[in-house]
Design a protein around this nucleic acid. Structure first.
Length: 422
RNA sequence: GGAGAGGUGACAGAGCGGCCGAUUGUGCUUCCCUGCUAAGGAAGUGUGGGCGCAAGCCCACCGUGGGUUCAAAUCCCACCCUCUCCGCCA
């Protein structure tokens, strides 16, 4: 969420940001609710002050009937005001969570994904002397029919060579990101001036409690997040969700920053509202595996960290020999909590188009405010931490390998960097 | 899942329903002492919020949420977490 103080001081800016993102929230409504909330707090505080003073005045000796009656009256008044405050608070915090983050200055304002900007295209599209197939026609390795019989639509058995390829791919990615030399090289090639600390490899929990999940701002019960019926637990939609909550309620020392995690986990998504889209193949499924980057930085280096994560993505793509384009998402297409969103779309020869395989999100302090993850800056002042997340490698990367490395006989060649692992 | 113990400030660790936002020790900061260090002495040292130009005043917070009471860290209930033992189990 945004800082209410910031919202109050920048009402026009925040309102424009929300409108540009296609949100119908009213900042004026929020502010007037906050006014009401503040006056209610003042009232409650005054009454409580009276109660405290009253209680103090009869500390020794037994209080008279009269004193007790006055205390009772105060108690009731407090209860009334507090009840009103609680109801205002409920509406208020719901509204506050709905206020989207303010997009970065270079984010294009747009009304559909057509307004996204292609920043660059890299790599070479492969030439085939045969008709390349979409991955769903390379059925040796992906069995969706049997998966559907037992789990329903949008599930798959990934088997044989491709199953092993995925393990190699993810393992390779984790190795790369936790290798100090690789990280230092990426940073220097990208011309960035940030700490070359490598990522810490993580295998995070894939279920989260409601309270923690809500705090991440990523809980979307209706169309994305799966809920477990008998427990207060949700299946994570990305390793990012549990990784970003790692320091929930903690204050980090400035020297600890940046903190970088690379986490591998399955990701679960309900995909409600995408009926009919990408029904063939495993581009859009309820369960997939993903290697995800997450980092915590101070305010000053947050943007550079975002650029760094994109550089990591591009490094991995180049190493894998996959052609891709980098797309800057417009206000309409980016997520509500984002300041900036960049997608990597990889060329899929079997589909003859670029498909989204990665994303990189600049969150600012929007996410960490809900999580109450803070840091002490160089002067010792407490500030809300800045978070960044980005895909390192997803099963969609695997799809890209399948389609780009397919052979005439339906088998798949192995990218050079993965060959030692296969 | 069953039985027991416990969750208090950076850490350790007290706490009778009102004198406890919280004893004390350690750590940390500043100062004094000191050739240096150690020891010693003094003061300070939580977070969030409201009001205020400010100094400051006030409110809340002792795992979380409820309740009892004129008054709750202290009593009651539920939940969460940690530890020990038992059971089950990859």
């Amino acid at each position: 969420m945004l800082d209410i103080q910031f919202i109050r001081e920048n009402q026009e800016l925040v309102q424009k940001a929300a409108t540009d993102k296609g949100s119908s929230v009213s900042i004026a409504e929020l502010v007037s609710l906050d006014d009401k909330r503040r006056s209610q707090i003042a009232q409650a505080d005054t009454l409580r002050q009276q109660r405290n003073e009253h209680a103090k005045s009869m500390k020794q000796g037994r209080p008279s009937e009269e004193q007790i009656a006055k205390g009772k009256e105060l108690k009731e008044q407090i209860a009334t005001v507090e009840a009103e405050l609680a109801s205002i608070n409920e509406t208020y915090s719901k509204l506050l969570y709905e206020i989207p983050n303010v997009p970065s200055h270079d984010t294009p304002v747009g009304s559909s994904e057509d307004d996204n900007q292609v920043l660059r295209q890299c790599g070479t599209k492969p030439n085939f002397d045969f008709e390349p197939k979409p991955h769903w026609e390379l059925t040796n390795y992906i069995d969706q029919e049997r998966a559907a019989r037992i789990s329903g639509a949008r599930f798959a058995f990934i088997q044989g060579l491709v199953a092993k390829l995925e393990m190699a791919l993810m393992y390779w990615g984790m190795q790369q990101l936790s290798d100090p030399e690789v990280i230092a090289g990426i940073i220097s090639d990208a011309g960035l001036d940030i700490d070359p600390k490598p990522f810490t490899a993580m295998l995070p929990p894939v279920m989260m409690r409601t309270e923690a999940y809500k705090a991440t701002g990523r809980l979307k019960p209706n169309d994305v997040t799966f809920k477990l019926a008998d427990d207060d637990l949700w299946l994570i939609g990305s390793a990012e969700h549990s990784l970003c909550a790692y320091y929930k309620g903690e204050t980090l020392e400035h020297e600890q920053l940046p903190i970088r995690f690379v986490g591998y986990s399955p990701a679960f998504r309900r995909e409600v509202g995408s009926a009919g889209a990408d029904t063939r193949g495993i581009l859009r499924v309820h369960q997939f595996n993903k290697l995800e980057m997450e980092s915590f930085t101070d305010e000053e280096t947050s943007r550079a960290e975002h650029e760094f994560m994109i550089a990591v993505q591009e490094y991995l793509m180049a190493q894998l020999g996959l052609p891709y384009q980098v797309v800057l998402k417009c206000t309409f297409d980016m997520g509500g909590p984002n300041q900036r969103g960049v997608d990597i779309e990889t060329w899929m020869p079997g589909q003859q188009k670029y498909r989204e395989t990665h994303s990189a999100d600049l969150m600012g302090d929007y996410q960490a405010r809900g999580l109450q993850t803070k840091y002490k800056d160089a002067d010792g002042n407490k500030k809300v931490a800045y978070t960044n997340d980005a895909t390192a490698i997803a099963d969609r990367t695997l799809i890209a390998i399948i389609e780009n490395y397919q052979q005439p006989d339906g088998t798949i060649a192995i990218p050079e960097v993965l060959q030692p692992l296969m």
